[in-house]
Design a protein around this nucleic acid. Structure first.
Lengths: 124, 124
DNA sequence: TCCATAATTCGATATTTATGGAAATGTAAG
DNA sequence: CTTACATTTCCATAAATATCGAATTATGGA
């Protein structure tokens, strides 16, 4: 997953209502839920909900399908997997972050380096 | 991890400069890096960098220690682990998100339910 | 004490984001 | 074709964020 995309996903989830919506959709399963029901369940005004759904869609975290007058939204599990993978890969420096007593030492970094860095003072 | 805290962490990482700073700190290891060096490496103005460092600190993603005139910032691996755990636990409904071909079906949910939901129309 | 340097805070500004009423759009049913 | 309803778009407004020069606050060395 590319950084730009990860940022979009993080931003989409970093908002109370949207995170609640996403969790609700995850809970609801692959079939999804209609906008009306989401609004009822989470008590969000239609226009506001629409705004947040668009935001989540834009980030690729949810998808929708129309069925007669209703629109069913569902969580896109793949993109959430990709986000978690991004965080695990890029923000834990190979320390198998999810695993218990991580942190410390930094083995040898089998992973890509940003290079760029490392310049002058302080020598550490 | 509580939702409020997760949101703070997500918001802190959902910004290009901050994500870059955090990744840089992760790469740098537990010892950390001085503010000056971060600014040089990522080319960010002091005041701007200070703002973002405060933001990351507030979210608990980094910590700092003063050493003479320098302040060393380092990634807080535990909180990143906690965030990943939160996402895995709450946004994948027991589908062991991180693992390959996840998504689909939704086994039986050994996990806590928000209850709240499920009301009227449409019956699904 | 005085100077240089590291980092933060202050303050002004520009941009983005969130909220929700009202109007518009789409779809189905009478 | 008219009405009912689901959802989105439009629009105005309020609030939060990001940026960065300038001033301020440490801290150490001459």
């Amino acid at each position: 997953m590319e950084t730009k995309i990860a940022i979009a996903a993080l931003a989409a989830l970093a908002q109370e209502t949207r995170l609640a919506v996403f969790r609700y959709l995850v809970e609801a399963g692959p079939q999804g839920v209609t906008v009306g029901r989401i609004g009822e369940a989470l008590d969000v005004a239609p226009a506001t909900l629409s705004f947040h759904l668009k935001e989540l869609s834009r980030a690729g975290l949810i998808t929708s399908r129309q069925e007669s007058r209703f629109i069913w939204y569902s969580a896109n599990y793949e993109s959430m997997n990709a986000l978690i993978a991004y965080l695990t890969d890029n923000c834990c420096q190979g320390q198998a972050c999810g695993v218990a007593g991580a942190a410390q030492a930094k083995p040898k970094s089998t992973r890509r380096k940003t290079a760029a860095a490392r310049k002058k003072r302080p020598s550490r």
